[in-house]
Amino acid sequence: MSEIARLFRAREAGILVMLVLFVAVVSLIQPRFFSTETLRIVLLAVPLILVAAMGQMMVLVARHVDLSIGSILGFSAIAAGMVFRDHPELPLFVGFAVGVLSGAALGFVNGLVVTVFKLPSIIVTLGTLSLYRGLLFILSGSKQIDPNDIPEPLIRMAQTSPIDIPWIVIIAFGVAFATWLFLTYSQIGRQIYAIGSNPVAAPLRGIRVMPVTILVFTLSGALAGLAGLIYAARFGYVNPGITGVGFEFTVIAAVVIGGVSINGGVGSVLGTVLGVLLLGSVQVALPILGVSGFWQNAIYGGIILIALVIDRTVRQGGLRGLLARGGA
């Protein structure tokens, strides 16, 4: 156990070093980057990714993957937006409830199909990626939720709060803290790690794999739903064809950078938060440095591959072990 703890620490320290190095290098090239203004922009860019990343992290720890979160985000944002538009008399929390619950329901369906039929989650969620997008088009009648249909208080959540840090930032870090509590102190939280490290042994240890796995997908969906509301707050409108498209790749990149192993069982909230911050900094730094936005995807893809190799190297005890044991 202590060895694993040390490994965690090593991983997070590594990401922290990368983050610090990145900020330092960018600041050297462009001193303007090192400012409270930049910090503000990064903090505004992060909540959307962070909230969804918490869900995706749990899914990955349980040795699954959820590709449908972009469509779930769009679906929930549209569902909540329609409540705001068609029933402006209802209080804000009703819209939040609709967004989060609809996300949870879609995530539940993912979990159900994956566990009942024992199918690989990547293919199932590739299917629901298309299915949920289609459903959200049908639900919305292909109509956008315009800015004047988004309630003013929701938009203000992306701008301010009593302590001057925008509400969405507070919510996002609150979600991260709650996830940490859940994974560290609850029995189910520990079981998620157990399932991911050894799915065969987990039932022998009395863990009910199926309900726990379904729960993980449901949580991932609910958090993607919450991210949908953050989207509506930050961008001020929801479009059925744009909102959430390609979002899954950003989130998976952030989580994998954060040291969550795609082989399950390994991953921490702190690492994921750092990964999200690193990704958010890259996103903000590119235009400030004047680097063409065209580089963004190539950089994300490259980072994922590098993170994979590092992950493998750590587990194989260095590069030599990695290559030596490769022979078949």
Binding site: R32, E37, I41, F235, Q283, V284, I288, G293
Partner: peptide
């Protein structure tokens, strides 16, 4: 001249960079 690709997210970060730069 900045380019936001008609994508809300990219348009947002590009505008933020304009204000910062």
């Amino acid at each position: 001249i900045a380019y936001g690709d008609d994508d809300p997210q990219k348009s947002t970060t590009e505008t933020e960079a304009l204000l910062a730069n």
